[in-house]
């Protein structure tokens, strides 16, 4: 099973083979595309598939799952004689539904995951908050990874002045004080962005993902640059250059797949980090409004009640954990699938 033993070709050869395939498209016996190959290998990676399934499940739960749960919760509230919010409540109404007779209730058949300090249903809040958290986590991670990869790749590949300039910018970003910077950014751009996006929710979302992603790319850039510095001297790059392949193609088609390992680790770390950083933004009052129960916020608020109602922090904490874990397995699978050396 170990991928280490699966390596059959040298990297140079692998790239040459791909190169040769491209040059002689149509001549090969059976055209095997890169994507097709990758998918075939990915499917065989069982943990990766499990990761995908969890992520798909979470996505479905927070988007479609709210409808059955709404009617379940309202039905349960009604049968157990608890106050029911207005007619046809949607999730938005349910997450604000207070019940002072059922504060900090442990998970039970009515409140499947228990209630918080104001008697609000934790599952409803997790479902609603998950929409925001998953989207913020993934989009912010993508922003930071793309930024970091491009900057790191360009700096490492071209070297010289470009490298110097880009790396000094990285230094700058690494040393900026995050909290005042975030306050300033939001203060300067909140109103224009909200105006441009037409709605406060969309505007705040854009600001949050840009701020979170824009402050997290530096480490990726450093790692990618380091890998590029080392790989660009290798034989397969020389070979590709001799064959007249363009610089951009060499960077992203030939060298980048070899740097996927650390990038994927960085990406996995990025999602959890983004979900948690988002909650920090709410704490500074520059993120989503305080009545949006994102997962990071639920953990922070719930931590206060660890001694009396541990589930308040553990449930959203576990949700973040599972998301990050799934993305990690997904990443492992992707790396194995895209690694030109592995032939599963």
């Amino acid at each position: 099973m170990s991928e280490a033993n699966q390596a059959m070709d040298t990297p140079a050869k692998a790239n040459l083979t791909t190169q040769a395939q491209q040059l002689t498209t149509g001549v090969a016996v059976k055209p095997r595309t890169l994507v097709g190959d990758a998918w075939r290998r990915f499917r065989k990676h069982r943990l990766a598939m499990a990761g995908v399934i969890i992520l798909v499940f979470f996505t479905l739960a927070v988007s479609l799952g709210s409808v059955p749960y709404q009617s379940y919760l309202v039905g349960q509230l009604a049968t157990s004689g608890m106050p029911v919010p207005q007619e046809n409540p949607d999730l938005r109404v349910l997450i604000d539904h207070l019940d002072f007779l059922n504060l900090l209730v442990a998970p039970n058949s009515v409140h499947l995951l228990g209630t918080d300090d104001l008697g609000r249903d934790l599952l409803a809040r997790s479902l609603y908050g998950g929409r925001v958290s998953l989207l913020v986590g993934l989009v912010a991670m993508l922003i930071s990874i793309v930024l970091g990869t491009v900057i790191g790749a360009v700096a490492g590949f071209f070297g010289g002045t470009i490298d110097q300039v880009l790396m000094r910018i990285t230094d700058l970003f690494l040393s900026l004080p995050a909290v005042p910077l975030i306050l300033l950014t939001v203060y300067l751009f909140r109103d224009p962005v909200i105006k441009a996006m037409g709605s406060p929710e969309a505007g705040i979302f854009i600001i949050v993902v840009v701020v979170v992603g824009g402050l997290a790319w530096m480490q990726t850039a450093r790692i990618v640059r380091a890998t590029f510095l080392s790989l660009k001297e290798k034989e397969f790059v020389e070979a590709a250059t001799c064959l007249g392949v363009g610089k951009v193609a060499i960077m992203f088609k030939h060298i980048l797949p070899n740097a996927l390992g650390p990038i994927i680790v960085a990406a996995t770390l990025g999602v959890g980090n983004a979900i948690i950083t988002e909650s920090t933004l709410s704490f500074l009052g520059v993120g989503f409004p305080p009545d949006t129960p994102t997962w990071g916020r639920l953990v922070t608020d719930g931590s206060q009640y660890l001694s009396v109602a541990p589930w308040l922090a553990l449930v959203p904490g576990a949700l973040i954990f599972l998301t990050v874990l799934s993305i990690n397995f997904l990443g492992d699978g992707l790396r194995d699938a895209l690694d030109p050396r592995s032939r599963l």
């Binding site: 959890g272 953990v299 904490g317």
Partner: peptide, 28 residues
């Protein structure tokens, strides 16, 4: 020992490490 028992445990622990904010670990 990729994908061994040790590796899986290590993986899980390290993901607890960075999907749980430090104030949470601290409070526990």
């Amino acid at each position: 020992k990729q994908y061994s028992f040790f590796d899986q445990i290590g993986t899980i622990f390290s993901f607890i490490g960075f999907s749980v904010p430090s104030f949470f670990t601290g409070l526990v």
